[in-house]
Design a protein around this nucleic acid. Structure first.
Lengths: 342, 342
DNA sequence: TTGTATGCGTTATCAA
DNA sequence: TTGATAACGCATACAA
């Protein structure tokens, strides 16, 4: 009642296991139609299934890839993961998925775990623009960065156009007449998505408002609701009649800001304006509709997986094609929250 | 420049690979402190890491489990997955995660794939209360159903208390004075979470309103916005002054209903009331706050993973403990959307 | 067209 | 306390 192995099938079919192995790997050219049919019939009737562990070990091809994501429970991550999964399914790869919580130590350990399991490549949402690099260097498999870049031209990446999209958003705010701009981000700020968004905001702010951009940037802990309320209260107090417009760098910040705005009894957009990352199904439902930036998260995942798998398939020839960085467009979805009535 | 293997370490340490293997598996009792230190030093300096594929093959313990989820991109699924991942990390198991899209065919294929990869157990969010069962029977590894039950007492499951929670919600609506109740669900209805919610609603409806519950149950396609709007328009038209109160069985239906309500320009709760699964961060932000049922999704995942892993660990003794069904409590979070002003 | 023999990198049973 | 040796299930070079 133990699991069937290749030898059992060989005996039942009165051939050697080599022939069975050939059959399993589709090498029908070295086989009479007769034995081929016989093997087929036996495999089907016995429901024999080859052990992938054994075949991976022997062939040195696990057909597994690693995926290190900051936190799979975040909605944008979940969508990105779905994109990766779908591509993996098509190519019959299995993704091994771990959350790193943006922790360098966990990230490094996970890379080791994945290598131990003989993954053929790794997709990673790096914890740090600089410090993550070390953990990825001198491994013998390809790495592709997803959603976040890393400060190195040795790695491929698939990201969204954070700077352009942020610029589009603040230009929109400015165009509407808002002059009291603020940005809310969470720490750490040494991940490319965040600092690029901050940079685009800062550049615009310096060019159009004034040089004192530091006081317009708020680093928050989205779980510390009281802190967020305090910052917003301050913004309103110092506004001198100029309606504050808040730009958030991700969904968590957005939710935190919206909750605070509600708690403080402020009206959007008459008392305060709010917009930013990420688009999600509730955005149109929250009065008066929240202006958001929609990223193509599914596509980021899918393209990254495609890229990684193509590199894996080329690996035999010691692929040394120059690393590429795919940048996917994001779109600004304008809703009532940023319509200026001042 | 190839990867180091156990033999390389054995040679460097002037011992046999048996000794290295013993060291790796912590069997220090059969080893002098001296060789133990020497091996430790060599492994550290060479950064040798054992190949898990080989050790899994030999020991017949892959330390991988399968996870079949309907759609990982849904927010509740992502949270559940996180619960599973966290428990797996603690016990050094790796989850192999696939989405099934509620498709029986995919589900069955995935089970085969997972078995091919020698997973030691499978967590599954079954596609069908009845038809899924066949694919799980007579496998040699434990299965645990997550979030959805299956019509069999051969399988463990970890779910939430759909009936109780739904009852609590409709009782609340009734208590508020709503008499024009409706339920919106998506197809298929042969998954336990959905039909249990429908059942609880129906029982209450028949007991308190009338026997004609069929006309109060709407099976929708959440992506078909026009259909949802049509149903709601109908509800309002036939309401004869009695405010309709809609209960939704999941997040997708909730979003779809809310979008339709907004599109139709209906006011909550004066023209229509809305409540249901699932709780999510926007619920309090949508005017006047949406009453929801909060499930402990993270806990469902975590408990299911714990259960599965404990069964795996007991497997050697041909575990035949009677299957259990853990039911986690959900809570009704009352907000403005269900406050009766009629 | 098919089979023999060897090895992938481990673990485990002996015996020493 | 240690080591030879034989597996685990499959793939492949080489022989026939």
């Amino acid at each position: 009642m133990d699991r069937l192995v290749i030898n059992d099938i060989a005996q039942a079919a009165h051939v050697s296991k080599t022939t069975i192995s050939r059959y399993l790997n589709g090498k029908y050219e070295y086989m009479s139609q007769e034995t081929r049919d016989r093997i087929k019939q036996i495999i089907e009737s016995t429901h024999y299934r080859p052990n992938k562990l054994a075949s991976s070990l022997k062939s040195n091809r696990s057909r597994q890839i690693g995926l290190l994501i900051a936190d799979i429970s975040r909605p944008v991550s979940a969508i990105l993961v779905r994109g990766i999964s779908d591509i993996c399914s098509e190519s019959e790869f299995t993704p091994l998925i771990y959350s790193t919580d943006g922790d360098l130590e966990k990230e490094r350990n996970r890379v080791e775990n994945l290598l131990d399991q003989q993954v053929e490549g790794i997709l990673v949402n790096p914890a740090d623009y600089i410090k993550s690099i070390e953990a990825f260097e001198n491994r013998n498999i390809p790495f592709v960065m997803i959603d976040r870049k890393v400060n190195s031209d040795h790695f491929d990446s698939v990201v969204t156009d954070s700077k352009k999209a942020t610029l589009k958003a603040v230009q929109h705010l400015y165009g509407q007449g808002f002059r009291n701009l603020a940005l809310f981000s969470e720490n750490p700020v040494n991940v490319s998505t965040r600092f690029e968004r901050i940079e685009a905001f800062s550049d615009f702010y310096k060019a159009k408002i004034n040089n004192n951009v530091e006081k317009a940037i708020f680093i928050i802990d989205p779980k510390n609701q009281e802190q967020v309320e305090r910052y917003i209260t301050g913004l309103v107090a110092e506004s001198k009649g100029s309606i504050p417009a808040i730009f958030t760098v991700n969904e968590l910040c957005m939710l935190s800001v919206l909750a605070a705005v509600q708690k403080l009894g402020l009206q959007i957009p008459d008392d305060i304006s709010v917009c930013g990352y990420d688009e999600w199904p509730c955005a149109p439902l929250i009065t008066p509709g929240i202006t958001t930036i929609a990223q193509q998260s599914y596509e980021v995942g899918a393209q990254a997986a495609k890229l990684l798998i193509s590199k894996i398939d080329k690996m035999e020839g010691q692929d040394e094609s120059a690393p590429v960085c795919h940048v996917l467009k994001s779109s600004l979805i304008v809703r009532g929250s940023t319509i200026f009535n001042g």
